[in-house]
Amino acid sequence: MSEDHSFSRRIPPGDTLLRRVCDTCGFVDYENPKIVVGAVVRQGEQVLLCRRAIEPRHGFWTIPAGFMELNETAEEGARREAREEACADIRITGLLAVYSIPRISQVQLIYVAELTGGFAPGPESLEVRLFDWDDIPWDELAFPSVHWALRHRREVWEKTACAPFVNPPGMLGDAFPGC
């Protein structure tokens, strides 16, 4: 699209929702949810968590995860995020969960993975650690979906693959307002 096009919100012919439509040529600029990919990474009986060095939720713990990039598979994105946030190489063994978070227009694909080497904080992490289950800082987790993913992983701890989980009943990811 050239920069001289202007857009207005209207319902295009054959559609039912307001969309951004080019006033010159009629191009419909569809705005769609963002896809987040990540993994609950294990090494033995421990899980890998990253303390966020960026907003939102700076200083809180999360699993390695982030937005998918163009031209990559979801699995490639999850491996890339583990490298970026934890300088970690991982082996993905299955899909753990698909979470829908409509408040922030996200769909999250969370994988089961094993750590295959060392780890260290990447540029988006203040600290990276392996935690025993009883030592996970539950009150310092960044997002509801991190809670869900860790608990869902625990439910299938001895398995490498399972039918994917979805949001817990009645939960749409808005337990932490403003993030």
Rank of each mutant, 00 (worst) to 15 (best):
Q43G: 03
T16N: 05
L172P: 00
L70W: 11
Q43N: 11
E114T: 02
R79E: 06
F176R: 05
L48N: 04
D174A: 08
R79H: 09
D23Q: 13
G26D: 05
A86H: 03
G26K: 05
R51A: 01
N167W: 05
R51W: 00
P102G: 07
A161C: 13
D134I: 08
V37T: 12
C50H: 06
F67S: 10
A53N: 15
A161L: 11
L141W: 01
L115R: 01
R10S: 12
E55Q: 08
E69S: 15
A175E: 15
P168I: 09
I92N: 05
P168V: 12
A142R: 08
E84I: 15
V41C: 00
F60M: 13
L70T: 09
V107E: 04
L95S: 04
P13S: 02
T73A: 08
S2I: 13
M171E: 15
R52T: 04
D132T: 10
G38W: 02
S145K: 13
V36I: 14
S105N: 09
C25V: 02
G59S: 11
A142T: 11
F131N: 07
G117S: 12
V156H: 10
F27P: 00
S100Q: 02
I63V: 14
A149H: 05
R129P: 08
R10Q: 14
A78P: 01
G77A: 15
E124Y: 11
T24Q: 11
F143A: 12
A39G: 08
P13E: 04
Q108W: 04
Q43V: 04
P144G: 05
L126Q: 14
E75I: 15
A39V: 08
E114Y: 10
G170S: 12
I90R: 01
L150A: 08
A39K: 02
T73V: 06
G38M: 05
F176S: 00
P13V: 03
I63C: 07
I136N: 01
D15S: 15
T160I: 12
L18M: 10
L18R: 13
V112I: 07
V166F: 03
D135A: 15
V40A: 05
M1T: 13
V28L: 03
F7E: 10
W61M: 04
A149F: 03
L141D: 01
N71S: 12
G38P: 02
T73L: 07
T116F: 00
S100T: 02
V107I: 09
P13A: 04
V146Y: 00
L95Y: 00
P169R: 05
V37A: 13
G170D: 09
L130R: 03
R91V: 01
F7S: 10
A65H: 10
P33M: 02
